[in-house]
C-alpha cells in the first residue's frame, strides 16, 4: 500500500495539484509514526504506512484556512491528505462546518485495518515499566516486539487493536479523490456500541463515581482538545477570561466542568476516532462519555457525524417533531 501512496503523491506533485501533502513518517520510537508534512516530490520516500498511523491528520487542516490568512490576500494552499475512515469522517465534519474548503483538498482515502494500541502491547507481555520495548516489526498480521534484553515476543495484531478500532464501521473515508485498497464496510453497529450499553445498565451512582474517578486524573494539559479535529475554536471556553467560565486549577470541579463542556461540544460532531483518548497522557477513558453522546444523537435525531456532506447537522437544524424529552427528562 505504501508504494501506491507514494506513487499517487508523486503524481500529485508532478501535475502540480497540491502544495503540501500530510501523511505519516517514520517515528523515533517503536510502535510509533509521526505526522509528516511534505512540500515537494523529493521527500516522498519519508512516507510510511503501518499499524501505528493512529494520529487523526484532519486536525491539521483548519490551520491552513484561517480567516485571518484570507484577509491578507494569501492564496490558500492545496493540500493532499492521507485519510483513514475516521480521518475522512472528520474531514466531512470540517467541510460542513466551513472550516476547510473541499476544493483545496485532495483526499487520498485508505482502507485501514485498524491501529495498534501501544498500551496493549506493553500490557500483553510485560508488567508496567518492568521492560522497555526497543523495537517492533510488523508482518502479515503479526507484531514482533523486542525488549532491551533482546528477547523477542510475537503478538497477533488483532489482539492489540485499539478499542476504538474494534468493530470499525467505516474503514475507508466516505469522500475521497482516490481510494487505496478496497473498502470493506462492516455493519457491526451493535457490537461497537456494546460497551456503552453495558455501562448504561449500571446504577447512576456507579456511573457518576466512574466519571469522577476518570476525570480526576486530568492535568489540564488539553491534549484531548488539541488532538481533536473538531476543537478548532479560535478561543476555547476553557481559556476565556472575560467572562471566566472555569477555574484554572486541577480541582475536581474545575476538571469536571472542562471535561463536561468539551464532551458536550462534541454532540453530533464526534466521529469516534479516538484521538482524544490516545493523546491523553493520563489514560482517561474519555470515549465512554463521547460515545454515549454519539448514541444519543443517533437515537434522538437519527444522525451520524461525518457520513454525508449534505445532511444538515442536528445542531444546525430544527424540525418541529424533534424529540425534547432529553431536555425535560434527563
Amino acid at each position: 500500500m505504501i508504494e501506491k501512496i507514494k506513487e499517487v503523491v508523486k503524481k500529485l506533485f508532478k501535475e502540480d495539484k497540491i502544495d503540501i501533502f500530510i501523511g505519516y513518517g517514520e517515528g523515533t520510537l517503536p510502535l510509533r509514526t509521526t505526522p509528516c508534512f511534505i512540500t515537494g516530490p523529493d521527500n516522498i520516500e519519508k512516507l510510511v504506512w503501518n499499524s501505528y498511523c493512529f494520529n487523526n491528520l484532519a486536525v491539521y487542516l483548519p490551520r491552513f484556512f484561517l480567516p485571518q490568512l484570507q484577509k491578507k490576500d494569501l492564496k490558500f494552499p492545496r493540500i493532499g491528505i492521507l485519510a483513514k475512515g475516521c480521518d475522512g469522517r472528520s474531514i466531512v465534519g470540517l467541510i460542513k462546518e466551513h472550516q476547510i474548503p473541499r476544493e483545496n483538498l485532495y483526499i487520498i482515502g485508505i482502507n485501514c485495518s485498524g491501529m495498534i494500541d501501544i498500551e496493549k502491547v506493553q500490557n500483553a507481555v510485560y508488567k508496567m515499566q518492568e521492560v522497555e520495548i526497543v523495537s517492533a516489526k510488523e508482518k502479515s498480521g503479526k507484531v514482533l516486539v523486542e525488549n532491551e534484553d533482546n528477547k523477542k515476543v510475537e503478538l497477533k495484531k488483532e489482539e492489540l487493536l485499539a478499542e476504538v478500532c474494534k468493530n470499525c464501521q467505516y474503514t475507508a473515508p466516505l469522500i475521497y479523490d482516490v481510494l487505496i485498497g478496497e473498502e470493506k464496510r462492516k455493519t457491526k453497529e451493535k457490537e461497537r456500541a456494546a460497551f456503552i450499553k453495558e455501562f448504561e445498565k449500571k446504577p447512576l451512582e456507579e456511573r457518576w463515581k466512574y466519571f469522577q474517578e476518570q476525570v480526576s486524573k486530568c492535568i489540564r494539559c488539553y491534549a484531548c482538545r488539541q488532538a481533536c479535529p473538531n476543537c478548532y475554536c479560535k478561543e476555547c471556553f476553557a481559556d476565556q477570561t472575560r467572562p471566566k467560565w472555569i477555574g484554572a486549577t486541577e480541582n475536581i470541579s474545575d476538571i469536571m466542568f472542562f471535561q463536561i463542556g468539551r464532551i458536550l461540544h462534541q454532540a453530533g460532531r464526534c466521529v469516534d476516532c479516538g484521538a482524544c483518548v490516545r493523546a491523553c497522557p493520563m489514560g482517561i477513558d474519555l470515549r465512554i462519555f463521547t460515545y454515549k453522546l454519539i448514541e444519543d444523537v443517533k437515537e434522538f435525531f437519527g444522525y451520524e457525524a461525518g457520513i454525508s456532506l449534505e445532511e444538515a447537522p442536528p445542531l444546525a437544524t430544527f424540525k418541529p417533531d424533534d424529540k425534547q424529552e432529553f431536555i425535560t427528562e434527563p
Partner: peptide
C-alpha cells in the same frame, strides 16, 4: 517555519517537564 508543523499545541511536554516552571496567577 517547519519544525513546529506537527505540534498539536497541548501542554504535555511542558507540564511533564521536570524543569518547566511557568505559572499563571489568578483569583478564585
Amino acid at each position: 517555519n517547519e519544525i513546529h508543523q506537527k505540534c498539536l499545541g497541548c501542554g504535555i511536554c511542558t507540564y511533564l517537564c521536570p524543569t518547566c516552571y511557568c505559572f499563571d496567577i489568578t483569583d478564585e
